[in-house]
């Protein structure tokens, strides 16, 4: 899985797990664990946008944060430029952080209301001791311009801005240290429809101009198809399907992906009327107590005996040059 199509592997995630302990009683004994991320492995190529989709609570944000070491993984490796981030000491980790940043979902909650826009955007520069006061200020102004805001806003506070503008501030802050890799966790979900396209176009342009690599988390599948090069589909702590976006959207081999695709509303009454929908029953089970075998089996209309007994392997059913990873016992039948 290291060198495909001459694409350069940038980040390798290997068997990554993040379990949150469940504590009970006066002695805070651990009585179980929320298996938010339960053994995921994938590569991120240099310069690509890898989309990560799945229902709420299936572990997308936890995956993103664990890769950036904002959460300490329970198990597994994250190789970034050949170094395992999970093994780095504090100071080394801090140094590598300037190369990896995060953009958050909620442009209201993620900006400190008592800091000026200039201080918010410049903070990462201070943390990493980059430049002096003057050069930082220049850099902040430059960043404001890059994200399409007037440098004149530098002394204003977040509440003076709209949601879309705040998200631009969040993007400027993430770009401050000149990172190579950005985890964008639902960066447009909280924005109005007419503003979403503005922010998506901005992120797309920045990627080209600055040579960025994105892990783009979203639940809007049309947007994921639009922005991503490859797409990973997550269910209950695991990645169930991963391939280039057209393969995932047009030739999915996993029943969960197929159900997700079938749930997307299409803005065309004629198509909607003709459409045969595959409606998924029930909701996502608790990751504290995931179903046995293939954890999708209680909701899967193709499930057979083996599905409740054996966890399906995440295997490549595509070619070496166009891999298509799927975790389903019966994936062949969807070809």
């Amino acid at each position: 899985m290291s060198q495909e199509n001459g694409k350069e592997t940038f980040i390798q995630v290997r068997n990554l797990k993040k379990h949150f302990p469940i504590m009970r009683g006066v002695f805070r004994r651990q009585v179980g664990a929320v298996k938010a991320v339960d053994g995921v492995s994938f590569d991120i190529y240099k310069g690509e946008t890898l989309g990560l989709v799945g229902e709420s609570g299936c572990g997308k944000s936890t995956t993103g944060r664990s890769i950036l070491q904002l959460l300490t993984p329970t198990e597994g490796e994250v190789l970034f430029d050949g170094r395992d981030l999970t093994k780095l000491g504090q100071s080394e980790l801090r140094k590598s952080r300037r190369h990896m940043q995060m953009i958050f979902q909620d442009p209201y909650a993620s900006l400190n209301p008592r800091m000026t826009v200039g201080n918010i955007i410049g903070e990462p520069l201070e943390i990493h001791n980059i430049g002096d006061a003057k050069s930082r200020k220049d850099r902040v102004k430059e960043l404001l311009k890059i994200v399409g805001l007037n440098p004149y806003f530098i002394n204003r506070y977040p509440h003076e801005f709209s949601g879309g503008q705040r998200q631009r501030i969040g993007v400027a802050r993430a770009l401050a240290t000149n990172p190579d890799f950005i985890v964008a966790d639902e960066p447009i979900s909280a924005l109005d429809v007419s503003i979403q396209a503005q922010v998506v176009n901005l992120l797309d342009d920045l990627k080209d101009d600055l040579g960025l690599t994105y892990l783009f988390i979203a639940h809007d599948l049309s947007m994921i198809r639009y922005i991503s090069d490859r797409v990973a589909v997550m269910y209950l702590g695991k990645i169930v399907e991963l391939s280039d976006k057209d393969t995932v959207f047009d030739h999915s081999l996993h029943p969960y992906t197929q159900a997700l695709l079938s749930a997307i509303p299409i803005p065309d009454p004629e198509k909607e009327e003709k459409r045969q929908r595959l409606i998924l029953e029930g909701g996502v089970p608790s990751p504290a107590n995931p179903p046995s075998g293939c954890n999708f089996h209680p909701r899967c209309s193709y499930a057979t005996d083996i599905c409740s007994q054996t966890d399906p392997e995440f295997r490549n059913l595509g070619t070496d040059s166009r891999p298509h990873f799927v975790a389903c016992h019966h994936a062949e039948q969807f070809k």
Binding site: V193, A197, Q198, D204, R225, I266, P267
Partner: peptide, 17 residues
Amino acid sequence: SMPKLDAKEQTRLASID
């Protein structure tokens, strides 16, 4: 400004300024 799900070649989203 909505991406088309079934469009292979995505053109740039027309955003409302």
